[in-house]
Write a protein that binds this DNA or RNA. Sequence first.
DNA 1: GTTACTAATGATGGAGACCTTCAAAAGTAA
DNA 2: TTACTTTTGAAGGTCTCCATCATTAGTAAC
Lengths: 388, 388
Amino acid sequence: MTEQLAGGDLSRLRQLNALAVVHVLRGREALTLTELSRDTGLSRPSTEDVVLQLQEQGWLEEVQPAPGVMGRPARRYRFRADAGHVLGVDIGGHTIRVLAADLDGQVKHTVRTPVAITAGRVDRLGAVDAAVAECLSGAGLSGADVWATTVGTSGLVDASGRVVLSVAFPEWTGVHLAQHVGRLVGGPVLVENDSRLAALAETWRGVARYAQHVVYLLAGLRTGTGLIIDGRLHRGFAQAAGEIGALPELGWIRAQEHLRGWTGAPAGTDPDELAGYVFAAAREGDRRALAVVRRYAKDLALGASALVLALDPQLVVLGGGFSRSADVLLEPLRREIEKRCVRIPEIVTSALGDEAVALGAVKHSLEHLQEHLFDARTGVAAPVRPGR
Amino acid sequence: MTEQLAGGDLSRLRQLNALAVVHVLRGREALTLTELSRDTGLSRPSTEDVVLQLQEQGWLEEVQPAPGVMGRPARRYRFRADAGHVLGVDIGGHTIRVLAADLDGQVKHTVRTPVAITAGRVDRLGAVDAAVAECLSGAGLSGADVWATTVGTSGLVDASGRVVLSVAFPEWTGVHLAQHVGRLVGGPVLVENDSRLAALAETWRGVARYAQHVVYLLAGLRTGTGLIIDGRLHRGFAQAAGEIGALPELGWIRAQEHLRGWTGAPAGTDPDELAGYVFAAAREGDRRALAVVRRYAKDLALGASALVLALDPQLVVLGGGFSRSADVLLEPLRREIEKRCVRIPEIVTSALGDEAVALGAVKHSLEHLQEHLFDARTGVAAPVRPGR
DNA sequence: GTTACTAATGATGGAGACCTTCAAAAGTAA
DNA sequence: TTACTTTTGAAGGTCTCCATCATTAGTAAC
């Protein structure tokens, strides 16, 4: 029923209290023992004992006392977020992004490498390797300092980190990304669908920060979705959740075609850039463009409404490349969703833009570490890179 | 991130160990201290201490030692599942069902009262009152012995236990069921959508026992759905999840019409019974009936496929009144789902039949108690009826 | 420069819950 | 009646927590 946390002997209590101290201290500035004692609910002597033990382990570090306060200066301790690092990798069509962050999720270095949309498997993997190497050196890290890595890619991914099916890049199907990236870094390498990671990022540092149930729409050259249910990323039984676009009746296959038919762009425009022209014309008030956007919004809303009706999220987040044109897209989308749904969720635009996937990858790495390093069952693990 | 379980002093450890003992003992026959010690991981003396405390509280009871074993006879203790009881109420169109069960979910008494489909609000509520009273006396209980009650009804229900919207019974809209039933029993009264409760029942004692992600289809005069995600009932932000039938493109509105158009039944047949004639004719091999069933299955599959694609469940359970005709319905449904979905889940028929909703209501009551009586945060609460 | 005030430190003593160990007890089997 | 088996019950020890209080290291005021 509920996940059972076994009782145990006294050391178990110490584990729990150490966990509580770490939890209070993570992501915050240094605290004194008195402050820690207040926030954990432990007595001061016990807090001290736990803190000293964590310091010995390497999780905590004493910092300079705060100056200019009354009374005897208190020792202050901070969480050593720099004890380990994680990577977030976003393998996009046009761009490869790599983020290095510490255990608090502070981004230490960002690398953004353009790659030709036509680049094949070998070239693209090569660009990934180069970007990872550059990011590591830029952050002053070696591969061995990385405790966990998450790679975001389009397509379906299996549990072992292999791309099972990529519609957008047929050549990508079968690539074993976990193995490939694992050559460069230590720790586990996780691979996850990019829409899902973008959704995760929005609940972490985006507009969905306090929502438990979120439908994230990736609207761009591809249309995808990421679902947050009960505050957690929903993958489904075989990592195939969110593929609602496969149902023809729900319009996501057709949605793109409205934009492709646009004739108001210079001859020879890359089909990938066509959408930008449509949205720009709509922004100018061009009636034909507005009609195209409306039709696109209607088809997008069809699939979105199915998700909203099924899940009743608090929030729908519009992300992906087209979210830059939310000024002309959001209103028609909202109207179409309102027409179809029983309860209307908030509908907002992504705040993270292009970085959403890479940020989500960082968060995903951190959540993985969280389970292994700070688990309620085992207490606080030693501050070393976990095995694969 | 993870739900934080605060550390604490030594009494906290005792709480956790008491919880562990209760968890091991619940739903099983009586165990000796040695067996309990083995299963909880505690030492024998500690186990004894915890057990004596729980016995004093009233949660455990000593029973006769097992006869005919070697060595000194061991004391045996069992969980006092009869310390409290819960009710599960299913207010259906034709039938009202009330189940009384103990804390282990053992059903002690069942009442099944027919009610006219045309019965209005007052008559229906009167029938509920009578059925509850009969069930209580049949189980030898008074309303004060009931620790939690769940009422299942069609329609949307708000958090306070009021029916916000009932399409099938317009007169039902606005009924404050929690308040009404609360006059008869002690403890909290929860109200929940019937499809959801049926889904819950399937994961408890039905065909979905070991699945974490389940889509339950209620196929009957109404079409509804219950979603189990991560082993828990998914309600959505405003209790409106699962209303995918509202989307016309997904066919659930239209699905019924195929059956209603059937002319092979005696003149004047109740429209509610028409479906039975269609399925019967299909069973006999009538080609027109088979075509009707196929069309119905196709429309049902459309909405089901949207759910499957969105959530990627391990299992789809076909329940509701029409599941009695699964022999002719399941195959066409499966074929249509297979046509549309990326990964095909298992598709099986409900094992619980008519009792699913009431059983789910019992389980829902028990889960509510679980959170209040056996919570990891607070440990084991006293064995008394919780407040509202 | 001294004195008063403030708040943290460090040490002491005590209580609760767990563990291991072992003699005594209460059965069955021979 | 004796041997064997397993549980019981008690004793002693350890760990982790708590409350309390004298001491210490600063700031503020005179």
